[in-house]
Amino acid sequence: MNIFRLCGDMTHLLSVVVLLLKIHTIKSCAGISLKTQELYALVFATRYLDIFTHHVSLYNTVMKIIFLGTSFTIVWYMRHHKVVRQTYDKEQDTFKHYMLIIPCFALALLIKTKFTPLEVLWTFSIYLEAVAIFPQLVLLQRTKNIDNLTGNYVFLLGAYRGLYLLNWIVRYFTEKGYRQWITWISGIVQTALYADFFYYYIKCWRNNEKLHLPS
């Protein structure tokens, strides 16, 4: 495991910590898309089906359990916690799940490496993760005052994807025969979705302004 992979995972973990901090400590999920969080829960649930059958390392197993547990915890908070659920911007978070789930599943049936249930679901999860941030980006654009925790949460998620790209470049040059086209192309698409957000995040940060996206 190279430094970029480790930093990527830690950034991903930190993004979850930031989001949980907002939800659990401040008791607010304002500006957070439940649609995106539900899609992430679905991503982890379909990708980590191999958790007990395909052991890579203790590190991987522990991280998988953390991501599964936290993603469902976040969804639970936003849907059921009596205080948190009242801060959810339901009217603004209008993106439809099926508009992302159905095309991703169709694509997973068409483009995958093996036609087995586990393999198709794993591929589906890769495609779905690439676009799962979409409802969140739409919601951010509609939000007038994006608070720091929400802005930082999305920034950390984007940074995690960028670091994974660097990790793949290192692996390509250091591991003989290493290639994974489905993951790479999905990863590039996923990182590209953050480009616009990054541009405004850095611009506002440099100007010492509160983060706002043009509508």
Binding site: D9, H54, V56, N60, F67, Y178, R179, I182, T183
Partner: peptide, 10 residues
């Protein structure tokens, strides 16, 4: 190595 074998990432 093919795509199916690389499942060591999260």
């Amino acid at each position: 190595t093919n795509d199916a074998d690389v499942k060591d990432e999260l």
